[in-house]
Design a binder for these strands. Structure first.
Length: 167
DNA sequence: CCCTGATTCGC
DNA sequence: GCGAATCAGG
């Protein structure tokens, strides 16, 4: 089914009346709401979005990043290739493995660690109710790669604990 | 998870 | 031009 004049007119009317795309699609029949939206857009009626739209511009092609035709990068070399210096492979350093100090679990930091007191190497685990006095952060030495200390990392990244909403 | 519109892109 | 796929948001 194609977009006849009558169907387009009806589309315009219903869209102007504030009907949702899916409702219009149902009324028209033989089309999906996607088709309706697409048509609305093409007609320049692109209108009332409940959401940002410009803010939320779809990132350019997640699917086009894996096209049927591969992009095939071109490595161009200028001049006499025989004189060309071999490109430095520049080996990646194999990500320095962190020593990962497991001990020292309990030396609680002095005083209450408030947000302003939090340092980058401190555990960001919140303790208490943010609306209540005495709310603070764990503040113990945190694991690298995690905002939390050893103890709280184990909790935060434990799926069971999460599922049961345990803390 | 249901819905909404917005956007991109292969056809 | 069309609309499915996919996105972000309510």
């Amino acid at each position: 089914m194609s977009w006849t004049d009558e169907r387009v007119d009806l589309l315009k009317k219903l869209w102007a009346d504030g009907l949702s795309a899916s409702q219009i699609a149902t009324k028209l029949g033989e089309v999906t709401r996607n088709a309706v939206i697409g048509k609305v857009h093409r007609l320049g009626l692109a209108g009332r979005a409940t959401t940002s739209r410009i803010r939320t511009a779809r990132p350019r092609s997640n699917i086009a990043l894996f096209p049927t035709r591969s992009p095939q990068v071109q490595y161009r070399t200028f001049g006499n290739t025989a004189l060309k210096i071999s490109p430095e492979p520049e080996q990646r350093k194999p990500a320095t493995i962190i020593p990962l100090t497991l001990p020292d679990l309990e030396p609680a930091p002095e005083g209450l660690i408030r947000l302003v007191d939090l340092k980058e190497n401190m555990c960001h685990w919140p303790v208490g109710d943010p609306m209540e006095d005495g709310f603070h952060f764990c503040g113990r030495r945190k694991n690298s790669g995690s905002p939390y200390c050893e103890h709280h990392s184990a909790i935060a990244y434990n799926p069971v604990a999460k599922k049961r909403r345990a803390m």
